[in-house]
Structures are given as structure tokens and as C-alpha cells.
């Protein structure tokens, strides 16, 4: 038996697959235990932020979570790249997109977050595992 510690979080599905196979199955991997961070006492997984972004935009935009400490208080800011699908020539429409994204995340996490729309291709692309969280709280 080979064991890997991938830190992927999943669950075993006891039911048989609809296709008739009898092998054991696992739930789609949505979280990794080492992705989790704690902000103002709340455990947050990037996948929760992804779910909120996906919900609003329909597809997942490039994003990045930035953690800072301001006056002794943890702050979480989500930077989201603007896509042609949500971009508008009207300031009001873009402000609405920004507010919708922020509310969607706040609803899932239960904490206040900042949300900044950023230009396309401004968030660094990483090879392999994406670096979604930038923690600037210590140092």
C-alpha cells in the first residue's frame, strides 16, 4: 500500500457509481488542508471564495487573497481580475459587479472583506499549484 499525504480534503462516497462500477469513489476535491487560513478567528478556505466568485460570474476569474493587519485587526482583500463578461463602459455597472462579488464572499464567510477589481493578467500566474493567498500579516 502506498500512502500519500496530499492534504486534499474529500470524503468517501459509499454509494455505487451510476455507471455500475463498484470501486470506491471520493467526492470532488474542493479544499486542501494547507490552504486554510484563519482570519479574525474564522477558518477560511480559498475554495469558499472560489465558490462565491463562480456563483456571481459564472466562470472562475483569476483572483488572489491578500491578508494584512491594519491597526491590530486582520483585513482580507480579494483581488479579482476583470473579465470581458463583466466589464462595462458604465461606472455604476462595474461598481455593482464589485459589490455583488464582495457580498457573495461575505455571505459565505460571514466576515467583512475588501474587494478590488484589477486589470487582466495582473495577478501572477504560477506553474502547478496556484498561490492564492498572500499573507502579509507578519512582517
Amino acid at each position: 500500500m502506498i500512502r500519500y499525504r496530499t492534504r486534499d480534503i474529500t470524503a468517501i462516497l459509499p454509494e455505487r457509481c451510476g455507471c455500475g462500477r463498484t470501486l470506491r469513489r471520493i467526492l470532488r476535491i474542493g479544499r486542501r488542508s494547507d490552504d486554510m487560513f484563519i482570519i479574525r478567528g474564522v477558518n477560511v478556505y480559498p475554495s469558499q471564495v472560489e465558490a462565491a466568485l463562480l456563483n456571481v460570474e459564472g466562470t472562475l476569474p483569476h483572483y488572489q487573497i491578500i491578508l494584512t493587519r491594519e491597526q491590530g485587526l486582520d483585513q482580507m482583500t480579494v483581488e479579482v481580475e476583470v473579465t470581458p463578461e463583466v466589464f462595462s463602459d458604465k461606472v455604476r455597472a462595474l461598481e455593482e459587479v464589485r459589490a455583488r462579488l464582495a457580498h457573495a464572499i461575505e455571505n459565505i464567510l460571514g466576515i467583512r472583506v475588501g474587494l478590488r477589481l484589477v486589470g487582466p493578467h495582473t495577478i501572477q500566474r504560477s506553474e502547478g499549484k496556484a498561490r492564492r493567498v498572500i499573507d502579509k500579516r507578519n512582517g
Binding site: 473579465t83 470581458p84 466589464f87 462595462s88 463602459d89 486589470g119 487582466p120 493578467h121
Partner: peptide, 8 residues
């Protein structure tokens, strides 16, 4: 060049 452009 990577810019997001909208036509109205």
C-alpha cells in the same frame, strides 16, 4: 495586448 475592451 491583454486589455479588456467593451463596445457600446
Amino acid at each position: 495586448d491583454g486589455w479588456v475592451v467593451n463596445v457600446s
